[in-house]
Design a binder for these strands. Structure first.
Lengths: 217, 217
DNA sequence: AGATGATGCGAGCGAAAACTCGTATTTAAG
DNA sequence: CTTAAATACGAGTTTTCGCTCGCATCATCT
């Protein structure tokens, strides 16, 4: 029995797991493969991402690639995980320090998320538009959890998250709104508009929603 | 010369155009093919959308399919165009009538867009997540154009679009914000939350942004 | 009816690409 | 140094899938 049994486009079935790299040599190889995946993805898109192309780009043999990745999508999944970890780390780093008022905290959070998006914009764009179907959105759930906790802290204090009736709804609205604006501002901005202005407007939008109705009807 | 010359994943090059259906018979066939495309897409996803699968599902021959569609992506493109037309028509119909105040107009617009998204949610979701890379975003530009005109009308009148410094920026922010919220509310809503509430919150969010700063600093 | 064009059919060709497996090389352990 | 495990290699096998092409059928016109 030579050859394979699942030659194209699995897209989900999470098939054979592979061995993990133990020695330094193989860890470097896996990194090289992920780098190559990113380069091919950015340069030619998901449709052109073949296992052979990645192996060639990485300068390793196709056999070596299959030692650690069961199929094409595993490459993209692993790459996205690595990318998410990097973004997450940057956000956490940016947000260190004491907790000031709500407005400052929102501004700081949005700024951090924006800078995280600017880490590898091209890669982020391809992953978002061409790999959206590869599920595993721990990232999103994780982020929403953090946001929920943040809002909760400010909703109960002497601060001003008043008009929002349900915290879960507020988390949903703020999360989606902020993410859409940040993502669009970095990945697909309107021509001839200052990026910093967009950051400010995003903060304004979120704050306006959270504190709306406090005074004017 | 049998066989082909472009065997897999064109993904863009907009190849050979095909004949248009002239008789009623062939028009029905094209419709059947598009319906089948939608069904396969919703049931198995873009990765499983093969021309043979579509032809089989539609109950027509693969040869007939290629009479009217040059390749796989042409199917998806045509389907998306049809879907967009339906949504657009529904929105226009819902928004007929005189123009009341800004708040009412925003609410009406958002309600219309939300109902349009509810037309074929499953199909809309697949198209958005798995066919995002197939460009041709006339829809988006078109919608943004309408929104810009709408905001312009209200920014100059005696109404209240005050704090927004740049109309282009406002269009960008409102467009992205509203679309993200509407899309998420219909396609991927938080569990156990009233959809109507989400609609109201979307309106609140947009209004809050547009009229923020009128009174409170 | 006959002629002409539009439409419909589907077996089969060709090529891309996923994936395996036997072998060679490197590293670590004893 | 010997041995074994881990790692690396890549030519070749297999399968899927896009797409063509020659022929059959149907519609329309004169």
């Amino acid at each position: 029995m030579v050859g394979n049994s699942r030659p194209d486009r699995p897209a989900s079935p999470r098939p054979a797991p592979r061995k993990r790299p133990r020695q330094a040599r193989s860890r470097a190889l896996v990194d090289a493969i992920l780098d190559a995946t990113a380069r091919v993805l950015v340069r030619d898109g998901y449709a052109a991402l073949t296992t052979n192309a990645v192996a060639t780009m990485a300068g390793v043999s196709i056999g070596s690639l299959y030692q650690y990745f069961p199929n094409r999508d595993a490459l993209v999944l692993a790459l996205r995980e690595r990318h998410s970890r990097q973004m997450h780390a940057l956000i956490v780093a940016q947000m260190a320090g004491e907790e000031p008022g709500l407005a400052i905290m929102i501004a700081r959070t949005i700024r951090a998320a924006m800078q995280a998006h600017r880490l590898e914009p091209a890669l982020h764009k391809v992953l978002a538009t061409e790999a959206a179907h590869l599920e595993t959105h721990h990232e999103k759930d994780e982020t929403e959890g953090l946001l929920h906790a943040l809002l909760e802290r400010y909703a109960l204090g002497a601060h001003a998250v008043v008009t929002v009736p349900d915290l879960r709804v507020a988390t949903f609205v703020v999360g989606r709104m902020a993410h859409a604006l940040i993502h669009a501002a970095v990945i697909d901005p309107p021509p001839g508009v200052d990026p910093d202005l967009l950051e400010g407007e995003t903060v304004r939008a979120v704050m306006a929603y959270l504190t709306a109705g406090r005074d004017a009807a």
